[in-house]
């Protein structure tokens, strides 16, 4: 019997370990492959020059700038709106049928295919509100796409703050909003930043939502205003991989590598900020 339990323990461990390995291995392989194929293309010129000769030569500077603009614009719209509505839903809204329906709807919105957001953005921002294909329209579309992520993670972060902290603060005669601001939010901040990290990755990497709303096929100059079209890395990658013949493989992988590095370094910044906040909490 004991031997049986021992072998079963071994078996369980092996299965769990193997599953993890199967999950992690492809990610590492993809990373290695992209770095291996792409790092030859990376040079100062590649990062800072305009594309030339139908994108077959030159750099990807406008696409990098475009992606950074879009990420920034997305956060400007989505972060305050998402965090504030999450606070309302978690802390203020009464637990009734309507609230539960809204919460469920938000969770489900996270699963809507991104091309649907793209079409929605085209209809509302580009055509109806007459923003045209522009950084503004693209940012708003991406913002709507990442809102469910921000709201859901913020709500989880708020819910993880012990109820007793709120009770103590209220029992001292502190108002609800002050309690949220001084006790709940500081404690939930690392979790909210996690939501922001996810939102940034999503906004930087998606192609479909920007396809109709902002992305330019070939625009060898920088955007002049938020009403200007812009190139963006994921769409540029799609274009040079499928739409333009005779492009050197290393340019494609180089572009993929740059996109990957931008997403990772944006994440890294947020992770460092989060670690800083956690440290300040000194449990």
């Amino acid at each position: 019997m004991i031997k049986n339990a021992y072998t079963r323990e071994k078996l369980a461990f092996s299965i769990l370990f193997l599953s993890t390995l199967v999950v992690v291995l492809p990610v590492i392989l993809i990373l290695i492959y992209i770095i291996y194929q792409g790092w030859h293309a990376i040079s100062w010129d590649f990062l800072t020059q305009m594309p030339k000769r139908g994108m077959r030569e030159g750099g990807i500077f406008p696409a990098i700038v475009g992606t950074l603009w879009l990420v920034l614009g997305t956060l400007i719209f989505a972060l305050p709106l998402g965090v504030l509505s999450a606070i309302y839903l978690s802390e203020y809204a009464k637990d009734n049928f309507l609230t539960r329906a809204v919460k469920l709807a938000i969770i489900n919105l996270a699963g809507v295919p991104s091309v649907v957001y793209g079409l929605f953005g085209l209809g509302i921002f580009v055509i109806f509100l007459k923003f045209g294909a522009s950084i503004l329209a693209g940012s708003l579309t991406l913002a709507i796409m990442v809102l469910p992520i921000i709201i859901t993670t913020t709500r989880e972060a708020l819910d993880s703050v012990p109820q007793s902290f709120r009770q103590v603060s209220l029992s001292l005669g502190v108002s609800k909003w002050e309690t949220i601001r001084r006790v709940v939010l500081p404690h939930a901040l690392p979790g909210i930043l996690t939501g922001m990290i996810l939102a940034v990755s999503r906004a930087a990497g998606e192609t479909a939502p920007i396809l109709f709303t902002v992305a330019a096929f070939y625009l060898p100059r920088l955007p002049k205003s938020i009403f200007d079209q812009a190139m963006a890395l994921p769409y540029h990658l799609y274009v040079i991989s499928t739409q333009v013949p005779n492009i050197k493989l290393e340019i494609r992988y180089g572009t993929a590598l740059v996109l990957l590095m931008i997403v990772l370094s944006l994440n890294l910044v947020a992770i460092l900020v989060r670690a800083q906040f956690r440290k300040k909490r000194k449990w």
Binding site: S164, Q167, V168, S171, L172, G173, V174, V183, P186, R281
Partner: peptide
Amino acid sequence: LRKRVGMVFALPIVLPMTVFENVAYG
């Protein structure tokens, strides 16, 4: 009202801050 009527709870619930700030919080 709650400023006039203070409450001490069953379990010690300190706020996640320094000793000084806990007392100064209110």
